Measured scan of single mutants.
Amino acid sequence: MLYRITVRNADGEKLEIVVEMSEDEVRALAEELRKAGYEVRVEPIPEGEEP
């Protein structure tokens, strides 16, 4: 499935990426980023919607 991941650092800089991963993989990635001090938001992209 496609997911949009938005990551912000302490300075407020934002990075937005689209990935194709399983829900478990995305959850693990988000958890690791949060542990590293980043603010993370994950949104699933519905099938048929443009990323």
Rank of each mutant, 00 (worst) to 15 (best):
A36P: 14
V19L: 10
E25W: 02
V40G: 01
I17G: 02
M21D: 01
L2W: 09
M21S: 13
V19R: 15
G48K: 10
L29A: 03
M1L: 15
G12H: 10
R27E: 10
E13C: 15
R8C: 07
I17M: 14
M21T: 07
R8W: 11
E23R: 07
R41F: 14
L2I: 09
G37Q: 02
G48D: 10
E32P: 01
N9C: 03
I5C: 01
L15G: 08
E20Y: 09
L33R: 01
E50M: 10
R4P: 00
Y3F: 07
L15P: 02
A28C: 02
E20N: 10
E39D: 08
T6M: 13
E32K: 15
E39W: 06
E39K: 03
E31Q: 09
R8Y: 09
L15F: 09
E47G: 14
E23I: 07
E13V: 15
R4M: 08
E50K: 09
V18P: 01
V42T: 04
A28R: 11
L33M: 13
L2G: 15
V7W: 14
G48C: 05
N9K: 15
R34K: 10
R34Q: 07
R41Q: 10
R4I: 06
V26N: 00
S22Y: 05
P46R: 09
S22M: 09
P46G: 08
E20T: 08
A28M: 04
I45A: 04
E13R: 11
M21P: 00
L29W: 11
V42M: 05
L33Q: 01
R4C: 03
E23S: 08
K35L: 05
G48A: 10
D11R: 11
E16Y: 15
M21L: 12
E31A: 04
A30Q: 05
R41T: 12
D11G: 10
R34L: 08
D24C: 09
M21C: 02
G12L: 04
L33E: 00
E16H: 08
P51G: 10
N9F: 14
E39N: 15
Y3R: 01
V18Q: 14
L2Q: 12
R8G: 08
I45Y: 09
P44K: 10
R27Q: 11
E13P: 11
E16L: 10
E49C: 02
I17K: 08
I17S: 14
E20M: 06
D24S: 13
L15Y: 13
D24E: 11
G12I: 07
D11C: 14
R34C: 14
M1W: 06
K14C: 01
R4N: 04
E43D: 12
K14A: 06
V42F: 08
E50F: 07
